[in-house]
């Protein structure tokens, strides 16, 4: 294929697959939203289901770009730092040492293999907080993309979550690396296959939250502070430094309503005890993932029309 360009005066052969002879179906945009197909706009916007299907198809089609963007986002987080990705290991490590000192040696908390016990839940918590904060601010951060390009916007919060998923994968290396220091804390079994499912659950929760908060944050900048406050509180009501079974039954029942509780304790059961996660404790997480994801799609679909005006 000729890579060079002839001088402008000479007619240039069209690139392969050039403009289609008869352009495809119409896309109509009115104040009601987008409508696909039909000769004239009728004012009936594409339904939630139709939009969702279109979005799903687009995500699949753009999966490589989405991945590239997420990797880049991940790399750029550490780009300007001398020690680079070392930091993604350093933070959980430093926290683990500090927390172990305070809780195991001073407060004498009676939990065997406390460092590993803490680290497993902390890694999930780190992912949840970082991904949620990043996705909430993502639409504002990419205002130029929102206002000036046809970039599919719903991919912005999703890509923010995915880039932190890479961090999570790295931190899991750390979790399993500690087998060398605390071999007694681990029970490896085929039940480890439950781990990706637990991660997926949290990913869906984050994406659901992100679809909501990222576009609401464009209009109402206070959303970011609400999310920050909820997260600060969340640390103490999640079984990170303790397990819910240590609480009195009535409190344990309440604590287990936290969607992340079942995931964190489930991960501990899988990694430390070689047991399946308790399905009953996972119900709040499952419900939250489904409800938040649907709510996210719904709210995003509504806010989408005004995003470019406020970003």
């Amino acid at each position: 294929m000729d890579q060079g360009f002839p001088p402008p005066s000479a007619p240039r052969p069209l690139p392969e697959g050039g403009p289609s002879p008869a352009s495809g179906p119409w896309t109509h945009r009115t104040s009601a939203g987008v409508q696909f197909g039909g000769e004239r706009p009728t004012g009936n916007r594409a339904g939630l289901l139709q939009s969702f299907r279109a979005a799903l198809g687009l995500t699949w089609k753009l999966r490589q770009m989405l991945w590239l963007l997420s990797v880049k986002d991940f790399k750029s987080r550490y780009r300007a730092q001398a020690l680079g990705m070392f930091w993604s290991f350093a933070y959980p490590l430093v926290m683990m040492v500090t927390v172990t000192l305070a809780f195991e040696y001073i407060l004498k908390i009676p939990i065997p293999h406390f460092p590993v016990f803490y680290l497993i839940a902390a890694v999930f918590w780190q992912f949840f907080t970082n991904a949620t904060l990043a996705t909430t601010g993502s639409m504002m951060e990419n205002a130029a993309l929102v206002k000036r390009t046809t970039f599919p916007r719903f991919l912005i919060p999703i890509s923010a979550v995915l880039s932190h998923l890479i961090n999570l994968a790295m931190e899991f290396v750390l979790v399993f690396g500690f087998y060398l220091a605390f071999p007694g804390a681990y029970t490896f079994s085929v039940k480890l296959i439950a781990l990706p499912a637990l991660v997926l659950l949290v990913v869906f929760i984050c994406i659901g939250v992100g679809l909501m908060t990222s576009c609401l944050n464009v209009r109402y900048r206070d959303v970011f502070y609400i999310v920050t406050s909820v997260i600060t509180m969340g640390f103490w009501v999640s079984p990170i430094l303790y397990s819910t079974s240590m609480a009195p039954p009535w409190l344990a029942a309440i604590l287990r309503l936290n969607p992340l509780a079942g995931v964190m304790e489930g991960a501990r059961d899988v990694i430390m005890l070689g047991q399946w996660p308790n399905p009953a404790y996972l119900v709040p997480g499952l419900v939250a993932a489904v409800v938040l994801f649907l709510m996210g799609c719904f709210i995003f679909n509504r806010q989408n029309l005004k995003l470019a005006d406020y970003a």
């Binding site: 896309t27 945009r29 939203g33 046809t150 029309l305 470019a308």
Partner: peptide, 19 residues
């Protein structure tokens, strides 16, 4: 131009595009 490109949405009337 942003309306034609589809990055912002109309307040009234319509933009229809193909391709």
């Amino acid at each position: 131009l942003t309306l034609v490109a589809g990055t912002s949405f109309p307040s009234e009337g319509s933009v229809s595009t193909r391709g």
